[in-house]
Nucleic acid binder design. Structure first.
Length: 113
RNA sequence: UGGGUCGGCAAGACGGUCGCGUCGGUUGGCAACAACCGCCGAGGAACGUCCGGGCUCCACAGGGCAGGACGGUGGGUAACACCCACCCGGGGCAACCCGCGAGAAAGUGCAACAGAGAGUAGACCGCCAGGGGUCUGUGCUCCUUAGGAAGCGCAAGCCUCGGGUAAGGCUGAAACGGUGGUGUAAGAGACCACCAGCGGUCCGCGUGAUCGGACCGGCUAGGUAAACCUCGUCCGGAGCAAGGUCAGACAGAGAGCUAUGGGGCUGCCCGUCCCGCUUUCGGGUAGACCGCUGGAGGGCUGCGGCAACGUAGUCCCGAGAUAGAUGGCCGUCCAUGGUGCGCAAGCACCGGGACAGAACCCGGCGUAAUAGCCGGCCCAUUCA
């Protein structure tokens, strides 16, 4: 799970990333990424629309994404902001599949200069 | 033992690992905050947002019309469309279940198809008397003596004409009481007896819906109010993005209507309060805190009540997020499903927990969804 310092909590931040961030697509998610020179820890935000499912399914997806983000947090450079938008079908995925899909895309985005 | 019916309980368990949020404490820090420790951390439906309230603001919310909701009776409640008890009607052998339960003799309207006729009913068949015609039989008269044909009359049949008749047939969800008799040309509540039903008056039990009974009346009245409508009761509006505090931001310009105006305030009118208002272009904010969870709150016991519930005592404090915590992953076991082996007990493998996530708070209703566990009652069966 992510602590408060590692989360995006402002609507402005979401707007900024979705509009101007670099974008990576996977079959079940879209990842927005932006980097700054500040030394603050990396921050994550999640968008789970209603097309994903009912409230229980959306909660499950969001919690899995949070847990996933926590596991990769040490490999992400400071000053990085990430927003993950879940797409329909993500609630039907198994944990392993989802983790493989997202972490692969995330690594690609993070490692690239 | 089987079937049924009503109600209650629970909503997999344990562990490992990595974590999250509120609050409290300690330490560090000017502070933001960080680290550590501790407590607590989703549901029976948290859901739908369909009713009813609390709370907040609008003017403490006034009058009328319109509109809406409800509708057996009595009670419960803050209130309700909810709950309890009873009544009536329907279903069931029964336990029990079901009913959008006011008014259809205040009025208007509506009713497919079938059928003769469907609402101050209706003559298709049938039945009945009569007129006309036809034919058969028969009586009398006549001519002729075997017989004949004409006239008059009677009876039955058939055809036809205009009537009478609602007892019978047919249709339909429904056809204007039922049975028996009197009566009649045939019939008919036309009349009579009993029964059913309706209305009225009175008596009795009951707070009451209602139930039981007596007498009288006219002889019969259909359904639909989830059609309009009538009657009774209730309802001001908007909602926690309510509302408040603090901080912060900005920039005005044009046009129109102006007190017989515009707005607060729902549709309209009255009343009342406030005052410049509307619109186009352009610009700006949507941050923090309070509201925010201790309440019509739960558990137990006593008392009152058939019960819903009320009341007294005592004990308990059980989420409060705000891009939104209450979890992710793994293992074992249990319940359960499938497949295979086995006579069976069982064993192995695979799948694997239903519906579903608080957002101001309560009381209900409705909807979703599973495999269980427990109990009351009823019926059938077996044994004693």
């Amino acid at each position: 799970m992510l602590a408060r310092a590692n989360r995006l909590v402002r609507a402005d931040d979401y707007r900024r990333l979705v509009r101007r961030g670099r974008r990576f697509s996977t079959p079940h998610a879209v990842i927005y990424l932006a980097r700054s020179d500040s030394a603050q820890p990396p921050r994550f935000g999640f968008i789970v629309p209603k097309t994903v499912g009912v409230a229980v399914a959306r909660n499950l997806v969001r919690r899995r994404l949070k847990a996933l983000s926590y596991s990769v947090i040490t490999s992400v450079a400071p000053g990085t902001d990430v927003v993950i938008r879940a797409l329909p079908g993500s609630a039907q995925l198994g944990w392993d599949t989802l983790r493989a899909e997202i972490s692969e895309a995330l690594d690609g985005g993070v490692l690239r200069p």
